Amino acid sequence: MTGICEGRVVIVTGAGRGLGRAHALAFAAEGARVVVNDLGVGPDGTGAGGGPAAAVVTEINEAGGTAVAHTGDIATEQGAASLVAAALDTFGRLDTLVNNAGFLRDRMLVNLTEDDWDAVVRVHLKGHFLPLKHAVAHWREETRAGRRPAARVVNTGSGAGLLGSVGQGNYAAAKAGIVALSLVAAAETGRYGVLVNAVAPAARTRMTERTFAAAMAAPGEGVFDAMAPGNVSPLVVWLGSAGSAGVTGRVFEAEGGRITVMEGWRPGPTADKGARRTPEEAGAAVRELLAEARPPGPVYGARQEGHGSAESV
């Protein structure tokens, strides 16, 4: 029985552990040949080592799949270029890019250092942009050569980037940027046969285990583990397959067995005077409009009407 990604070549960044590892294994199980990228850093981005990527490659190969490791830093021009080259040089093609690499350095804003900000924005946002840029450049050349691909990009957002998250200003800002980048990329690259979507997952990984603690503990034997990373992978694999034709510029939340289509900013109540307002008139108009508008979703971690805080994903 062939899988839905039979014959496709897929890159997964940050695939040494957690969600990335689950995605890589799931793609391989559906017949894809996988480039497993992982720098091997710690949860805060420090240190490095090729062990995690190599371990996932071994796991895929021993299960009868085909994979190769890439341990370059995809948040650099050279690393991103070599990542795409690894797929082309090893397998002769590239069909799907899954941008997933990232780490956390959580701090309240007043305690957030410039290095904490730069490091997290770099790995998440720049680490999405550069592989995307080099993959699309390849697919553009394929289209120009008369070989229009059925290319797919799946970017990794977060509920933190959709609603905000207390103590994660750097991470939330980077994830919000990834969503905007995904929408722009979808609009720009469709002409080259590229479909771009984003997924905001909720799962138990190294990045979330300290935040969620006992709430994310694995359940007992025989009980559905709603927070297992592998629950998110079927959606990612489908979006990365040829079967997702026509789906682009969308953002999905995925947790356990739940998939939600997220609907972003849309115009709400509007008032137009047709002339310049005084500050008092502007304030009165805003009050009237807010009375008609839907309230925003609560920021993760913010206290709501006396209740405890809810943590971010």
Rank of each mutant, 00 (worst) to 15 (best):
G18V: 05
W139M: 13
L88R: 13
L19P: 08
H124I: 08
D116L: 10
E142T: 06
V223P: 09
T248G: 12
R107W: 14
A87G: 08
F224D: 10
I178A: 07
I178H: 06
T66A: 10
V68S: 05
A203N: 09
T211V: 13
S165P: 11
E62H: 04
D44K: 09
S82F: 02
G274P: 06
D95I: 12
G161S: 03
R144W: 11
N170Q: 13
A86I: 09
L104V: 15
G7C: 12
L132G: 02
D106V: 12
H128E: 14
G222E: 01
A174N: 01
L181N: 12
A87T: 09
G146I: 04
D95V: 05
V237G: 01
D38Y: 11
P43Q: 14
Y300H: 10
A310W: 06
G16P: 04
L19M: 10
T2D: 13
E77I: 12
G268N: 10
D38A: 12
V12E: 11
V194D: 06
N37S: 10
R140D: 02
A101H: 08
T96Q: 03
V232R: 05
G157R: 13
L195S: 01
E209I: 11
K126C: 05
G65D: 11
A186T: 10
G64P: 15
G51N: 02
G161W: 10
E221A: 14
Q168K: 12
G256L: 14
F212S: 04
A81R: 01
T96E: 06
V251S: 12
A180V: 08
A173H: 08
V84W: 04
T205M: 08
L97N: 06
Q78I: 10
G268L: 02
G65P: 14
E292R: 13
H138Y: 08
G246D: 00
T205S: 11
A213E: 06
A180C: 02
D118N: 09
A32E: 00
M1T: 08
R152T: 03
L104A: 15
S82C: 03
N197K: 00
R122P: 03
I11A: 15
G240K: 05
T205K: 03
D118G: 01
G49W: 00
K126H: 09
A150I: 11
W139I: 07
G7E: 08
R148A: 01
G72D: 04
G127R: 00
A32Y: 00
I178W: 09
A180Q: 13
A145I: 06
G222T: 03
R105A: 01
R17T: 15
T90G: 08
V56I: 14
E253A: 03
A174H: 06
G220P: 02
R107G: 05
V194K: 07
K126P: 05
A151M: 11
N170D: 12
E292H: 06
G92H: 08
A119S: 14
V98H: 02
R204A: 05
R210F: 13
D225T: 02
A81V: 07
V34I: 14
I60K: 03
T189V: 14
N170V: 07
V196T: 12
A63T: 10
G308M: 01
V237I: 09
R107K: 15
